[in-house]
Amino acid sequence: MSSSAIGSSISIREVTKRYGAFTAADRISLDIEPGEFVTLLGPSGSGKTTLLNLLAGFQSIDSGGIVVDGKPIHGVPVHKRGFGMVFQSYALFPNMTVAQNVAFPMRMAGVNRAESDRRVAETLDMMRLSEHASKQPSEMSGGQQQRVAIARAIVMRPKVVLMDEPLSALDRRLREEIQIEIRALHQAIGSTFLFVTHDQSEALTMSDRIAVMEQGKIVQVASPEEIYRRPRNRFVAGFVGESNLIEAEILRREGGALTLRTRTGHQFRAESRDEVTGRNVTVLVRPERLRLTDTSGPGTIPARVVSALFLGEVLRIEIELDSGELLLVRCPDRAGHALPAIGSVQHVSWGAEDGWVIA
């Protein structure tokens, strides 16, 4: 997070929101530090936008509470919470110029013209929009319009910035470019950012921490590295990145390391949390952690190639073990490294540090 954080602390405690018989937010608790960038990540209907709207004040809480900088915000109107908001739709005023759109919050707050002009110019420069100040939104690309929407949200230097899937309408290249810009912007201004997305790559790229949501609950909160490398359960493992889930039996426990055996008798080691119990477990091995060769060796398992795709920077290869289990391998494209033939026999292996026991 920013070393000069101006952001607010946020404490969400046992927050519940129901729509009839449907519980959109189910006793959610989450603490966010001043100046932190936290992403709510989950599929449609998981409750992430509902939680954002409860914090913004667009919807009312059924039970629980939200405290910002030590003060409850229940009953505080939206316009008095002082949050910056960036929506999925750009929500720009079509009859205003870029500069006028960005200046709008300053005008509503009664900021004098000289100060407003200074702030707007500074913010447009920060968002690389200075040369577009006199344009109408209709004269700009989608990426430029989204930059205007972000500029309007931060021009008042709010302590909290809320973003609801702001990049979903953009193409991949532009989305990745603006992800980097948002991350740099967060570090520059030091506000607390709460970002909503269903795109795991966005969450991994920008966040200090990620809160993964499922069916109205937060199922894991951790750094991007922890979420990806050590997911708490099958849902997190499957939703964040591509996964190989291997069924195995525990033979020995040595602290956080386990010796395991697959259904075909292959023995290997993997890391785990202390609370993993039971004899039969599921082991996560990410596709990029698998090593594939055309020769057998110690610790390798024979497998048949089911599919092989060239994706540019990586090769995506699906293999089938003798047990019938399918594994996905992703390896970087290398000079002289051809795609294996469909139906050919390869040998796959991984190290103890590459496996993670999730259940």
Rank of each mutant, 00 (worst) to 15 (best):
M1K: 12
A5K: 08
S8W: 00
S11Y: 09
R13V: 11
E14Q: 15
E14A: 14
F22I: 10
A24M: 02
A24R: 05
D26N: 14
D26K: 11
S29P: 05
L30V: 12
L30Y: 08
L30R: 11
I32P: 03
P34L: 00
T39D: 00
L41I: 11
G42S: 05
G45W: 00
G47E: 00
K48C: 01
L52T: 09
N53K: 14
A56H: 06
F58Q: 09
F58G: 06
P72Q: 07
V78P: 01
G82Y: 04
G82P: 05
F87W: 01
A91T: 07
N95G: 09
N95L: 12
T97W: 00
V98L: 03
A99E: 05
G110F: 06
S116H: 01
E122I: 05
T123L: 13
M127N: 03
R128A: 12
L129P: 00
S130K: 12
E131C: 04
E131Y: 02
P137I: 01
E139S: 09
M140D: 04
Q144D: 06
Q145Y: 04
Q146K: 06
A149E: 03
R152I: 03
R152S: 00
I154L: 05
V155G: 04
M156L: 13
V160S: 05
V160R: 06
D164G: 07
A169R: 15
L170A: 04
D171L: 01
R173W: 09
E177L: 10
E181C: 00
E181T: 02
A184N: 15
A184T: 15
L185R: 14
Q187A: 13
A188E: 12
T192F: 04
V196I: 14
D199S: 13
A203K: 06
T205E: 13
D208E: 10
I210W: 01
A211Y: 01
Q215Y: 08
G216F: 01
G216M: 04
V221A: 08
E226W: 06
R230Q: 08
R230T: 07
V236R: 04
F239T: 08
V240W: 02
S243G: 05
I246V: 14
I246A: 10
A248C: 02
E249W: 12
R253A: 08
E254G: 14
E254K: 15
E254M: 14
L258M: 12
L258N: 08
T259V: 10
L260R: 06
T262R: 04
R263E: 09
G265N: 14
V276A: 12
T282R: 11
R286L: 02
R286W: 01
R289N: 02
L290A: 02
L290D: 03
S296V: 07
G297N: 05
P298K: 02
R304F: 04
R304E: 07
V305L: 02
V306N: 12
S307R: 03
L309T: 14
F310R: 11
L311F: 12
R316Y: 03
E318L: 11
E318N: 14
I319T: 08
E320R: 13
D322Y: 10
S323Q: 01
E325C: 13
L328F: 05
L328A: 10
D333C: 15
A338Q: 13
L339T: 03
G343Q: 09
G351W: 08
G355C: 05
A359S: 15
